[in-house]
Design a protein around this nucleic acid. Sequence first.
DNA 1: CTGAAAGCGCTAACAC
DNA 2: GTGTTAGCGCTTTCAG
Lengths: 368, 368
Amino acid sequence: MSATIKDVAERAGVSIATVSNVVNGSRFVSGDLAEKVHHAIKELGYQPNPLGRALRKGRSYTIALILPDHSNPFFVQVARGVDEQARRREYGLITCNTDEDPDLETFYVSSLLKRKVDGFVVAPTHRGAETLKPLIEHGAPLVVVDRCIAGMKVDEVFSDNEGGAYEATAYLVGLGHRSIGLIAGIPGISSIEDRVAGYRRALIEHDLPVDESLMAQGCSQIKEGASSAEVLLGKRGITAIFSTNNMMTLGALQCFKKLGVRCPDDVSLIGFDDSEWASAFTPSLTVVAQQAYEMGYSAGDLLFEAIGRGKETHSTRAIKLQTVLIPRESTARPPALRGKKEVHRATSSGGKNKPSASAKSGTRRSPR
Amino acid sequence: MSATIKDVAERAGVSIATVSNVVNGSRFVSGDLAEKVHHAIKELGYQPNPLGRALRKGRSYTIALILPDHSNPFFVQVARGVDEQARRREYGLITCNTDEDPDLETFYVSSLLKRKVDGFVVAPTHRGAETLKPLIEHGAPLVVVDRCIAGMKVDEVFSDNEGGAYEATAYLVGLGHRSIGLIAGIPGISSIEDRVAGYRRALIEHDLPVDESLMAQGCSQIKEGASSAEVLLGKRGITAIFSTNNMMTLGALQCFKKLGVRCPDDVSLIGFDDSEWASAFTPSLTVVAQQAYEMGYSAGDLLFEAIGRGKETHSTRAIKLQTVLIPRESTARPPALRGKKEVHRATSSGGKNKPSASAKSGTRRSPR
DNA sequence: CTGAAAGCGCTAACAC
DNA sequence: GTGTTAGCGCTTTCAG
């Protein structure tokens, strides 16, 4: 079909080794021969076959990205970041969607391991990370994003979830809310757990009771967001809801709509993750935004660093990305206080929320 | 690292050919030996290395999916359909996002061709399809989705865009609208052009003037949707807008919001493509839904059929999928007619809209 | 029915 | 500096 290294060698009247050396710059080749080789390559339109190279070198020049939900705009942005990195380095990228299914995650891991992928970026379905064991035992380069895993030391990139949730909750408190419901996503995932922790800390630091009945847990899906919201709206006195996940926020809105609950007139809503529709909604949504593209981009950085390092062990690295609160229309003072002057109790992320030592300073964002 | 076919052969006391034959079922192997081989495989946890196989067979057991916008939920669903097909057949899938950039499309095509991908599913950035020339010349199996290309004969799967647009427009006419704006997406793409054609036919068949100034063209992005909507809202007498694209519909809503235009009180809005947020919006959106998952799934079918067929030429196939109008809250009678009884002129897709001969009967939908 | 051996395209010793 | 050659792991003739 297409020309091989042998064809080029014959054409240029040199050995295949010389062609290889010219192509890869692995050895010095005299200008004379190099010239001929380049010529032959151009004439035949030679493209080195990555399969041959892969077999020989034992690596495929391909990395894998395993994400839990391609429908979630957050992960789409993460994917863009990783994609950019792979393209820059002329690496192939295989993106997989587990739909939060650990079995599918296990399937993908083994299937990609077979394919001799050079490294993995993954947002695991569970912090236990049994699904990633084969990877780690195999010693494959791995970077975990969005969700940290327990026990094992691996490179990781994640948001300051605790801080972001604190800020969101404190913002609601600052508006005058005293009874704030929580819609929590999938249990057993560090990002969600950290957000719940931030919510709790904010209540405690502002001398508000932590009421377990005001905390609904679901599965980071639209439907579950809707049912969680419905439960919370049944509690008397509730004037605000903090939703810890993109998709569940959407569900909460569907629920509001169904029940005829006006936002922010009846109840305020603040979500985690910004999205394209968040600002188009009526009301537009107040959210805690993450640096999604940056998360993927940094993960790519770490991964390629690890790949470059090869088998040598190294101390693992953690990159924590700051979140940013974007106030919009879905949050307002509670009905009882409407019209009275605002008691601004807290809008910053609070004293205990120490800045991350490893966070990048420059905030790179999606090119789009 | 991991066990090779040689290890298995030694362990089982047979030749590597026998192991290969057992693994692939390519030749009959006596029960006795087969037994031993299976045993050895299990003991060593042998996994055939796809790279070796790929090199030998000249195919990679991987297909590529090239899509123009991963942020668009429509394409995410298409991707799910293709993904399912690839997984069923134990093929790898490489998904690429061109962001509607022809140069990026060209890059991906050449890069994937180098990697000896076995087949392509692509939604091209332009109907001219210069970007796909290398593919076609190379004879690589190819299925085009969502957007047809001109001139070349290739397998294709697409929606009945003309019919869907006709139905949308006729629906608005039926509600009493007489001045209906159009937000058109990227020019030079068949799906968009067909939708514009359907809009025109509906106006003509209902004896309404076709006013070019009521047709705004943009680039299938949120921003462009917003600016198009702003232009249209400047036209006097306009009471309804038909948006031919998911993302532009979102932009139109942002624009409405910015300008304080109430929907459907001031102007009705109908979009192409359903999405998760379409039903959560206030107002919820009336849309023409496509069978996105099915589109990807069918494309996978056609592709693997072509791959199985090998180099033999064949007559190309076209699968046309029906659309379905989902009435929600964003469409209502025009302000002037509010309260008067409805003149139901048309809600079906009209007589000229003949059903597709090749459309699948069963409507397979996403498992989620 | 099974084994030996060639070779897919490439890289990396090893020679000269 | 450059060429020769031995494989990477696998499939598939070709012999027997």
